[in-house]
Design a protein around this nucleic acid. Structure first.
Length: 577
RNA sequence: CGGGGCGUGGCGCAGUUGGUAGCGCGCUUGCUUUGGGAGCAAGAAGCCCCCAGUUCGAGUCUGGGCGCCCCGACCA
């Protein structure tokens, strides 16, 4: 992507003042440096500088995907409703899917993701195990009508995703395809100069043997991750396990106690003078319209993704107060599975064998004490249902876990056969039988990736681009108007650095030096060459590094060699090419 | 979808008891300046988010919309 530009001709609308709407640093700096402009909530325009950064990022992604054996395609963003109806996601996506009609009044969707499209392609063209494995990827705009776009470019309604899909004949093939993507993602984020970590993530309903997310720690992150500083265990809180000390209480007879107006855990615990951990929460959910109890200790929170995995259905919701009354005979706050027949009960592992517990009596203003889970509750199974917390013991090594907010940059997924079965994407295996394709899917949010780089690499003055993704590698600050020695030397260096295949911005604007320095720092070009009369009197120009302010004074004819020296190490963090 | 905040030149904001709009930055022109966002002078630029109402008169008051931001819910 060779490119060079005179700043006087460039469209780089920088802002001296902070835009009011920007809270995150990356958002603020993208707006101030003239990378983007907002058109509507969650809809951004990429201006020349911003687009150059995205192109750089996409090129890195492309090179690493190709290296991993994936093949680039370009699929439509517009798709007919029928294909979504086949998998049921025309309904499942609900309001999040942008929908429209064509002139014949046929329904279409703007694709929020491309599993359906890919699988349809595969069923049409992949016939034999000899055609496998395949991995197809694209960089394409995804449309999602988010209920609340936010954080600048981090959660938006249309964004570029690199999405890849692997097709394999068996589980071993999927494992290999998945591993290749895992390695590619490592290389991509490393080349982008990011500090990141990988966590185990929720497979939810997708089935298969799991998924992992590539995360960047950030206070603005929408995900929370449990990370063990000791052994490296890391998991999205949706699936994170932890060990807690479970107190035990002496067994007792089941007795009903009056608890007038005591509805919450705190109220009941205080009223009965027992710790919250001695209570258990009886949470009633409707799973496919049938009631299911989820039990966790009073001082724990139910983790809904874990509950979803345990019941094996995504079609669930908390029961309404009316349903609670109808099913248990008591209002919310006084219910439990004790003495109730015909309602499935799932309990958290920490309740296994618990004695002397307190929960609702299924009567207004009354609770049971002395509950024995074994004796009094018909628990279908004990599973991990609770939310892990900061400071609890790592399930692998026992050290205290950190819980940290993070931004999800990439997600790799063993899909299995969910889509191939729904769309009948089969192949004929070696033994002549027809089998569904085993699929994986792998996504990276491109704009999010660029924003995360800024989050991790900026200072008071502006962005500090890593060389690999900088919109330009070198800016020449020409400190003197037309006809001066500075202008002459600047023009020479401009040409010379272009010839050496650098991307160079020549700041030939009619502005004062300080103005140019501020702009260059804001925009974050890694290397600045100052060409001014002051230095030229001694026959020297300055090379200044954006990241640490290091200053080198060299003769103009040495600039090229010095720039090469300064860029060689950082340019290719993986020592390739 | 709940809660909060905000809509006034391109950007950031002010606007008193209701009397027909102002500041800083930016922009245009000229002069002076020129190593960390220069100074002076002269300009241009506003459907005060929209609609209805109250009023002699609304940026300002009332009602209803719409848009944007933040917190939460949600997030294949």
């Amino acid at each position: 992507m060779r490119c060079h530009l005179r700043w006087s001709k460039a469209f780089i609308p920088t802002l001296k003042e902070d835009p009011a709407e920007a809270e995150m640093q990356s958002h603020r700096l993208m707006l101030r440096s003239g990378m983007v402009r907002q058109l509507a909530a969650g809809v951004y325009e990429y201006l020349p500088l911003g687009w150059r950064v995205l192109l750089k990022v996409m090129q890195i992604v492309r090179e690493e995907m190709n290296r991993a054996g994936a093949q680039e395609v370009f699929l439509p963003a517009l798709s007919p409703a029928e294909i979504w109806q086949e998998t049921g996601r025309w309904d499942d996506f609900g309001d999040e899917m942008f929908r429209l009609k064509d002139r014949k009044k046929r329904d279409y969707a703007l694709c929020p993701t491309h599993e359906e499209i890919i699988t349809d392609l595969a069923r049409a063209k992949v016939r034999s195990y000899r055609d496998l494995p395949q991995n197809w990827y694209q960089m394409q705009v995804k449309f999602r009508d988010e209920p609340r776009p936010r954080s600048g470019v981090l959660r938006v309604r249309h964004f570029i995703m690199k999405d890849a899909y692997s097709l394999d004949r068996d589980q071993a093939g999927l494992d290999a395809s998945y591993q290749a993507m895992y390695d590619a993602y490592h290389r991509i984020f490393t080349r982008c100069g990011l500090k990141f970590f990988v966590v185990g993530a929720s497979s939810g309903l997708m089935g298969g043997s799991g998924s992992q997310e590539f995360m960047v720690a950030s206070p603005s992150g929408e995900d929370s991750c449990a990370v063990c500083p000791g052994c490296g265990y890391a998991a999205n809180l949706e699936v994170a396990r932890s060990m807690r000390k479970v107190p035990s209480y002496p067994g007792d007879q089941l007795t009903e106690v009056a608890t007038p107006e005591k509805r919450t855990i705190e109220e009941v615990a205080y009223f009965l003078r027992v710790p919250a951990s001695r209570l258990f929460k009886s949470l009633l959910y409707m799973v496919e319209d049938r009631p299911v109890f989820a039990l966790v200790r009073g001082d724990d929170e139910l983790n809904e993704p874990k509950f979803q995995a345990a019941v094996g259905s995504g079609n669930f919701r908390p029961a309404t107060p009316e349903e609670v009354l109808r099913i248990t005979g008591a209002p919310v706050g006084f219910i439990s599975p004790v003495g109730l027949e015909g309602v499935r009960v799932l309990a958290d592992r920490s309740l296994q064998g618990a004695e002397g517990m307190v929960s609702g009596a299924n009567r207004d203003h009354a609770h049971y004490a002395g509950i024995s889970l074994e004796r009094d509750v018909r628990v279908e199974k004990y599973v991990d249902l609770r939310m892990a917390r900061q400071g609890e013991a790592c399930p692998e090594c026992g050290r205290p876990l950190d819980v940290t907010p993070a931004i999800e940059l990439g997600h790799i997924f063993k899909l299995g056969t969910k889509y191939s079965q729904a769309l009948k994407a089969n192949f004929v295996d070696e033994d002549g039988t027809e089998k569904p394709l085993i699929m994986g899917s792998y996504g990276i949010g491109i704009e999010r990736l660029a924003a995360c780089i800024i989050e991790q690499s900026h200072d008071q003055s502006g962005i500090v681009w890593p060389l690999a993704v900088a919109p330009y590698q070198v800016v020449i600050s020409q400190l003197g108007g037309p006809g001066t020695e500075a202008a002459k030397v600047s023009a020479q260096l401009y040409q010379e650095l272009q010839d050496a295949r650098y991307e160079v911005l020549l700041d030939d604007r009619d502005e004062r030096p300080g103005f140019k320095f501020k702009d260059a720092d804001l925009v974050g070009v890694p290397i600045r060459v100052n060409v001014g009369e002051k230095g030229l009197k001694e026959g020297l120009v300055e090379i200044k590094l954006r990241k640490d302010g290091q200053l080198f004074k060299v003769r103009p004819e040495e600039v090229r060699r010095k720039v090469q020296e300064l860029t060689s190490v950082e340019m290719w963090p993986l020592k390739q090419q």
